[in-house]
Amino acid sequence: MTLTPNEILALPKVVLHDHLDGGLRPSTLIELAAEIGHELPSTDPDELARIFSDNADAGDLVRYLEAFAHTTAVMQSADNLRRIAREAVVDLAADGVIYAELRYAPEQHVAGGLTLQQVVEAVQDGIEDGVSEALEAGHAIRAAAILDAMRHLDRSLEIAQLALDNRGRCCVAFDIAGPELGFPPAHHREAFQLLRENHMPVTIHAGEADGAASVGEALGLGSARRIGHGVRIHEDIDGFGTDEVSYGVIAQHALDQQIPLECCPTSNVQTGAAPSIADHPMHELRDLGFAVTINTDNRLVSGVTMSSEFGVLVEAGWTKEDLFEATLAAAWGAFLPYDERADLAESVIEGYGIDL
């Protein structure tokens, strides 16, 4: 039975991969840009959103990334960071998200004079404000932050220490983001060693702009507990898409350990990691038993919500049970203590009305 948009909206959702600088409200971006004199492609919210999504659909990475120059320009003060984080949580909650992990790179928000610690605290204040505001509107949500280090720069050890200093209240994990091809986890060996020694959870962007070997390095040297995107892990599976498959070491490890793959359907197509929604590798990976999860990546830039991502998967043949399994995998993959993950999983089960 095909789910209606209202039925999809009502389903509880868990998002593990949502970039703060990729999910601003268009109206907020326009208002904040005007305050600092930053010129945007349009000052009409609908048109601006359309320009960004058209650029994302163009198959041109330069055009896709253009939006981030605009969003980060307005994210250089504590007040703006607090507001943007608050609105992100409120918007996700209104979309049926009951748990969200928002990721951002603190080093991208210090041009206005903030310290890295001040950036982290401003975002956390916004997250907490958003949770309270959402609850007042009747939407219960829990939200957390993941700190990104930019993989083409050299501050990963500093950001790793920042994550450790703020574990618990302001940070639940560490990530490296930015250009994947040519900037492997090995460039950040010291950071990952520090994190391993201190038992800090790690997720790494891999298997999006580079192949299965990138996923392998993320799981090995990086000791990643989840993989950001990860869709090109199928390149380590001989016979992928047939009835006779043979797993390479990397794919077997991810399957055996049930490493959550933070798939982002629309974004993966836009960046070329998947040929189309209909032919997205996540469908077959799901059928093979991999821990596939559904995520937004960049809500403004890609023009998506969690509900719209659920919707395109339903159009591609996903059932309510398929969405449930992916959401349950996300709940168990959350960077939370075991008992809190169990509670989150129970909320997902109750929300879907699935009799296990």
Rank of each mutant, 00 (worst) to 15 (best):
A10L: 12
P12R: 12
V14E: 14
H19C: 00
D21A: 04
R25F: 11
P26E: 11
S27A: 15
T28N: 07
I30N: 13
L32W: 10
I36A: 05
G37F: 01
P41R: 09
S42V: 01
T43L: 07
P45H: 09
D46P: 03
E47Q: 15
L48R: 11
F52Q: 08
G59V: 08
G59H: 11
L61G: 02
Y64W: 15
E66H: 09
A67K: 08
H70E: 12
T71R: 07
A73S: 10
A73K: 10
V74Y: 13
R82Q: 08
I84Y: 14
A85E: 11
E87S: 03
A88R: 12
A88C: 10
V89A: 11
V89T: 02
V90C: 12
V90T: 05
D91C: 09
A94V: 04
Y99P: 08
E101Y: 01
E101L: 00
L102D: 14
R103N: 05
Y104M: 00
V110A: 07
Q117Y: 05
Q117W: 06
Q118K: 08
E128L: 13
E128W: 05
E128V: 04
V131M: 15
E133C: 05
I141W: 10
R142W: 02
A144S: 10
A145H: 09
I146V: 10
I146N: 13
A149K: 07
R151T: 00
D154S: 13
L162M: 14
L162C: 05
V172L: 00
V172M: 02
V172T: 01
F174L: 01
L181Y: 11
P184W: 05
A186S: 15
L194I: 01
L194R: 13
L195Q: 12
R196W: 01
E197Q: 10
N198L: 04
N198A: 06
H199I: 06
A206M: 02
D210W: 00
A213C: 02
G220E: 15
R225S: 02
I227V: 03
I237A: 09
I237R: 08
I237E: 11
G239L: 03
G241A: 04
T242G: 10
D243W: 02
G248S: 02
A251I: 00
A254R: 00
Q257Y: 09
I259R: 03
I259Q: 07
L261I: 00
E262H: 00
C264R: 09
C264F: 12
T266M: 14
S267L: 05
N268P: 02
P275C: 05
A278M: 13
H280Q: 10
H283T: 06
L285S: 08
R286M: 13
F290M: 14
F290D: 12
A291S: 13
A291P: 15
T293G: 14
I294D: 13
N295G: 07
D297G: 06
L300W: 14
S302E: 14
G303M: 04
S307L: 11
S308W: 09
E309V: 01
G311N: 08
V314M: 01
E315Y: 03
A316T: 05
E321H: 13
A331N: 12
W332D: 11
A334K: 08
L336A: 02
E340R: 03
R341L: 09
D343S: 09
D343H: 05
I349V: 15
I349W: 09
E350I: 02
G351F: 09
G353K: 05
I354C: 06
L356P: 14
